[in-house]
Design a protein around this nucleic acid. Structure first.
Lengths: 119, 119
DNA sequence: TCTACATATCAACGATAGTTGAAATGTAGA
DNA sequence: TCTACATTTCAACTATCGTTGATATGTAGA
């Protein structure tokens, strides 16, 4: 991930409705949610949400697929992970002050106690 | 960190000059850089930079202190760390797909190989 | 105190982002 | 094919953001 991509990702997350969409989709898991359900959950008009979904997709934070007459959106876990890595990368150039607490937080979270953390 | 704080942090990072300021300050370490040096490094007019620095400080991503007649800015490592934790928190509620690569990235970075990673 | 330097504040402008309503596109079933 | 449903696209409007120039504040040295 380069600076330009990170920039669009941060800008995408720096908007109330978009941040909420991402958080809802992340917790929804790979199954995702239909655009209509998302609009109702987030509390935004369909056409407005469509605008934001397009921006999030362009930033590489969410993905979409058609299912019947619905379009189902889901979190792009790889994109989110890349963003985290980008945010952490520089700190490692001699200054572990950022990473240390983040590592501690990961150690305390469920997903870091499983096999995935040892990969 | 709540949603509102995360929102302002992401919005702050979603701007070219501000993202560059944060990256420069993070690599500069706790010593930080004077506002004038920052302006020259980032390539922004002093008054414009002042506006952005204020926004970054308000978002809790940087800190400032006066040194003589200069104002020295430095990265707020705690704030950045909180943001990373916020971004990762939800994914851990049953879906380790985001954390797994991030953990792997941390394992590969210098700061995770030291004592801090075992805390 | 006076001067020079460093930074911050303010008002005003242009550019961009977010919302809205109407219309278009695409899909499934009768 | 026709109709109903789900989503997207488009144009227009308003609000907010980022920049600029001028001015104010604060600090150090003569």
């Amino acid at each position: 991930m380069n600076e330009r991509q990170a920039l669009s990702a941060f800008a995408a997350l720096g908007q109330e409705h978009r941040l909420r969409v991402v958080r809802v989709l992340v917790t929804a898991g790979p199954a995702g949610l239909a655009a209509g359900v998302l609009a109702e959950t987030v509390g935004v008009a369909g056409n407005t949400l469509s605008f934001h979904l397009k921006e999030l997709a362009h930033a590489g934070l969410i993905a979409s697929r058609r299912e019947g007459r619905s379009v189902v959106y889901s979190a792009a876990y790889a994109g989110l992970s890349d963003l985290v890595r980008f945010l952490m990368r520089d700190c490692c150039q001699g200054h572990p002050e950022v990473c240390a607490p983040a590592v501690a937080a990961l150690a305390a979270c469920d997903c870091a106690t499983g096999d995935t953390a040892r990969a």
